Amino acid sequence: MLRLFLFGFLLSTINTYPIKDEEAVIEVEDTKEIVDLKKMLNDVSYVTNFRNMMADYVKSQYKNLTVNDMEKIQGHLEEFCHRFARDLKDIVENIDQVRAIETVNDGLPDSTFEDIKKCIKNELPNVTDETADQITYVLRKNIFVTRQKIDAVIRSSEIAAIENS
């Protein structure tokens, strides 16, 4: 269930456009710095929303998690965001570099990630298929690693609950 939610959220995040306040129209020509700042703020809000939604989802599905367990999960989600951002930055800065794309045995259908790749291509039409493949791969790899860490926290919490009963 966590897996489906995660991928549903990722698909919706990729397809979601930033919310615009139509009442606040300012007649200022957007300089490169303003455009970069707007993009950065939108990215930060996506990351924050993702982290909060995932933490809320885990908390709703696993009622016996302690505050400490939730802090660990928040930390893992934060780590995911940092790793994924770092990987994306590396891809963008070294766009011409060829990277090996390994198989991620996460038990999820490849079609999910093909949909994500299509969304990336729609959002960023200048991106090559190879770059979209690399982005999709680092996303899938980072999700898999993060999911393993969150699952470990949940398992240890369940074991602790059984031992304390």
Rank of each mutant, 00 (worst) to 15 (best):
N122K: 13
D87I: 06
G107A: 07
K63C: 03
M70N: 05
F80R: 02
T103N: 10
I116T: 05
S60H: 10
R99H: 04
T16L: 00
Y46S: 07
V28F: 06
I34S: 06
H76P: 07
Y62A: 06
T13H: 12
N15A: 14
R83V: 00
T66G: 09
H76A: 14
A100Q: 07
N42T: 11
K32C: 01
S45Q: 03
D30H: 12
Y46I: 12
S60L: 14
R51W: 00
R86K: 14
A24R: 12
T16K: 09
H82P: 00
S12H: 12
I19F: 06
K117N: 03
V44A: 11
T112I: 15
F84W: 08
E29K: 09
Q97W: 00
K118M: 09
N105T: 13
I19P: 01
V28L: 12
K72Q: 15
D36Q: 12
G107P: 06
K118P: 01
N42I: 03
F50P: 01
K39C: 02
D21W: 09
V67W: 07
D36N: 07
V67A: 10
D115H: 02
I101E: 08
V47W: 01
F50D: 09
R83T: 04
E78V: 05
S111W: 11
L77E: 07
P125D: 09
T31C: 01
H82F: 13
T131E: 12
I101S: 05
K72N: 10
R86T: 07
E71M: 15
D129Q: 15
E102V: 06
Q74L: 15
Y57F: 15
D56R: 11
L124G: 01
V35Y: 02
K59C: 10
R51K: 09
C81W: 05
M54H: 02
V127P: 04
M70L: 13
T48I: 04
T112E: 09
V98H: 01
H76F: 15
E78I: 08
D21A: 10
N105M: 13
S45P: 00
T66D: 08
V104S: 11
L124M: 11
C81N: 12
N68M: 14
Y57H: 14
F50I: 02
E33M: 02
E33T: 04
T48K: 00
Q97D: 02
A100G: 05
F80D: 03
